[in-house]
Design a protein around this nucleic acid. Structure first.
Length: 427
RNA sequence: GGAAAAGUACCCAAGUGGCUGAAGGGGCUCCCCUGCUAAGGGAGUAGUACGUGAAUAACGUAGCGCGGGUUCAAAUCCCGCCUUUUCCGCCA
């Protein structure tokens, strides 16, 4: 949520900033609502003060045996005005809230405007793998080696689902274990959150109300606020852990990571991408989240980016780091760097990790604050998140980049301890 | 899923219509006394949000789980919801 005060004070500045994200807004209506609300608030609060004052007098007058009936009539009139005024204020407040709640976060100053094509490759890691034999794609490799059962996955749950089997399940689990062990040794706290979340979490993370059609809803109440949904990423859970609380500044930064499957509808995604594991309705991900003071947040962002890259590096994969243009960052985020892995069969880089700084956008939405040591007052903290990592893209990239001429797959060294020392996958 | 009870400040807890923004404890902070490992006395101790404002001054408003309602006036009465506890049911 953008600070409404900032919008009122510098509407042109906010407007220009959001425009970089491709979001055209006109604040003139919002500003007039706000003006109207303030004026109403002042007059109604004055009436309430009046009522409070008179109400305190009534018992005294009664004790003295003085008549109070005429005062009652007067107060009833004031009471009616207050009721009307409060109703009007609530109505305007709701309009203002709904308007502001739908605004995306403002991108950082240094981001360029534009969409995907304006993204900037920051660094390329590793060497592009070269093969002296015809490259097989990961679907064929996985099927031939019995790693993934696509057909039976679809039989169980429909298109967009698959089942890991045998060495495939082991490899998937090894990846997750590798990520987990790395985060543990970096001092991050391991969280296993609920996979079903209530509406507020989606709102706090910034996914609702705009993107509430992209998740799976569980209950059937027509009011979504009463229903739960399957989390589309652990970020949605982690970022709401301290909603409504005020934490001590000394305790920050919080460093968390979680493993959860991620459930997404992925409606309208490109057909070609649905082949294999590039885009499914359920995939495994280890997610990192930090809570920081505003001062710590840039350093934390760098740390998360480095961690994501380091995982990829240790796996020995060819990948690159991209700084996203404003329009390619998701709604809640002020800045995002993507880690993208090379998929030989597709000849392109695909996202395996998205590291983002939400600044105080999410904290404002879910009211997460820290007590500023200097001023003693609560301030909104910053939330950052990054995949560390999503296996659904790493797995196919790994299988393709580590394939051998005979169709077998070499297990990257760092994963071997998590696979009982196994060095190669073949039938 | 069904039934009952409860939700008051950092914690415990009193409070069924009006000097109660909230008694009394505990804890914590400060001061005093006592000379010894502990006790006594006194004072202080809602945070927060919003509005006016240069202000982290002052004033006002809201705030006793949340949201409504009744009333001149609600922690207190009424309705709905949420959460917790206990009991029952179900069960990997």
């Amino acid at each position: 949520m953008i600070d409404i005060k900032l919008i009122i004070e510098k509407p042109d500045y906010v407007q220009a900033s959001l425009k970089k994200k491709g979001c055209d807004v006109d604040f003139s209506e919002l500003i007039s609502w706000d003006k109207e609300k303030r004026a109403l608030l002042q007059s109604i609060e004055a009436l309430k003060a009046e009522r409070n004052k008179v109400s305190a007098e009534i018992p005294k007058l009664k004790k003295q045996g003085l008549p109070v009936e005429n005062i009652f009539a007067e107060m009833r009139a004031i009471g009616d005005k207050i009721t009307d005024g409060d109703a009007k204020i609530n109505e305007i407040s709701e309009k203002i809230f709904n308007f502001v709640a739908c605004l995306p976060n403002m991108p950082d100053e240094d981001l360029v405007a534009g969409e995907k094509e304006a993204n900037e490759v920051v660094k390329v890691y590793g060497k592009m793998p070269e093969f002296s034999f015809p490259v097989q794609n990961h679907v064929d490799l996985c099927v031939k080696n019995g790693l993934i059962d696509y057909e039976r996955g679809v039989k169980l749950a429909g298109n967009g689902f698959w089942a890991y089997r045998g060495d495939g399940a082991r490899l998937e689990w090894a990846l997750l274990n590798f990520f987990i062990s790395e985060h543990l040794s970096d001092g991050y706290e391991f969280i296993l959150p609920p996979h079903q979340l209530s509406y507020n979490c989606g709102f706090g993370a910034g996914q609702f109300p705009k993107f509430s059609d992209e998740v799976y809803w569980l209950d059937v109440d027509e009011d979504r606020k009463k229903n739960r949904f399957m989390l589309p990423t652990a970020e949605t859970a982690l970022v709401n852990l301290y909603a409504g609380e005020i934490v001590e500044e000394d305790k920050l930064p919080f460093k968390f990571f979680a493993y959860t499957p991620c459930y997404r509808k992925e409606a309208g995604s490109a057909r070609s991408e649905e082949r294999g594991m590039i885009r499914g309705h359920q995939f495994n991900k280890v997610e990192m989240v930090q809570y920081t003071t505003p001062e710590q947040s840039d350093k934390a962002f760098e740390e998360l980016v480095n961690k994501a890259c380091s995982l990829m590096d240790k796996l020995g994969l060819h990948f690159r780091l991209s700084k996203l243009a404003a329009g390619d960052c998701s709604a809640s985020m002020a800045r995002t760097y993507d880690v993208e892995v090379w998929i030989p069969s597709m000849g392109i880089f695909k996202e395996v990790s998205s590291v983002s700084n939400a600044r105080d956008y999410q904290a404002r939405r879910n009211n997460t604050r820290y007590r500023n040591k200097e001023t003693g007052r609560p301030n909104y903290l910053h939330t950052l998140n990054g995949s560390g990592l999503a296996t659904s893209r790493v797995f196919p990239a790994l299988v393709e980049q580590y394939q051998n001429a005979d169709g077998s797959i070499t297990v990257p060294e760092v994963l071997r301890p998590f696979m009982g020392g196994q060095e190669i996958i073949k039938l």
